[in-house]
Computed example of a mutant assay.
Amino acid sequence: MQIIDGAGRWGPPADLAANDWVEHLRVPDLSVGTYCIPAGGVDDQSPHTEDEIYVVTAGRARIVTPSGDAAVGPGAVIFVPAGEEHRFVDVTEDLVLLVVFGPAYGSRARRDV
């Protein structure tokens, strides 16, 4: 067992960064992190090679995907399949997302030999 301290809590972006991403746990089959976008910020992420679940712990925004968009706020749980384009827009309050990747983030990324 492991308690993951700090997961899902606000972390202001580092100097000159648009957003803040911190990975808290990584094992082969999953990883857990916190992604923060300040109010008025722009989500600059690209599609991931792993399935992903977001849990909104604070803030408000909209998530946009090719299949539609939805308002999200505290308590919302969002599933995004691997490879699906997605973006958080209209961030009206500092957005804090607990993120779970399966398998671990980046583990399916193509690596040139």
Rank of each mutant, 00 (worst) to 15 (best):
G102T: 14
S107D: 07
I78F: 06
V27K: 10
D90T: 06
I63D: 00
A71P: 02
V22K: 14
L97K: 00
A71Y: 03
Q45Y: 12
G11T: 05
W10I: 03
W21L: 09
F79S: 13
Q45D: 15
Y105K: 01
I37E: 04
A7Y: 03
E52L: 13
P74V: 14
T49E: 15
R111L: 12
E50F: 12
W10H: 02
P13H: 09
G33E: 10
N19D: 12
A39M: 09
V72F: 05
S67F: 08
V99P: 00
V22C: 03
R110C: 00
V56A: 05
G106P: 03
V113C: 00
Y54V: 04
V42Q: 12
R9W: 03
D43I: 14
I37V: 15
S107H: 05
V89W: 02
G8R: 02
G83S: 09
E84F: 02
G75C: 11
G102K: 01
I78H: 06
T49Q: 14
L25K: 09
D15P: 05
V22P: 02
E52H: 10
V100T: 11
A82T: 01
V113N: 07
W21C: 02
W10P: 00
V22Y: 02
S107A: 08
L95P: 01
P103C: 15
V89H: 05
G11E: 05
V42K: 09
D20L: 06
T65P: 13
T65W: 06
R108H: 09
P74G: 14
L95E: 02
R62P: 05
W21S: 01
T92Q: 07
T92L: 04
E52A: 09
G106K: 01
D20W: 07
V113R: 10
R87W: 01
Q2C: 05
P38N: 14
H48S: 10
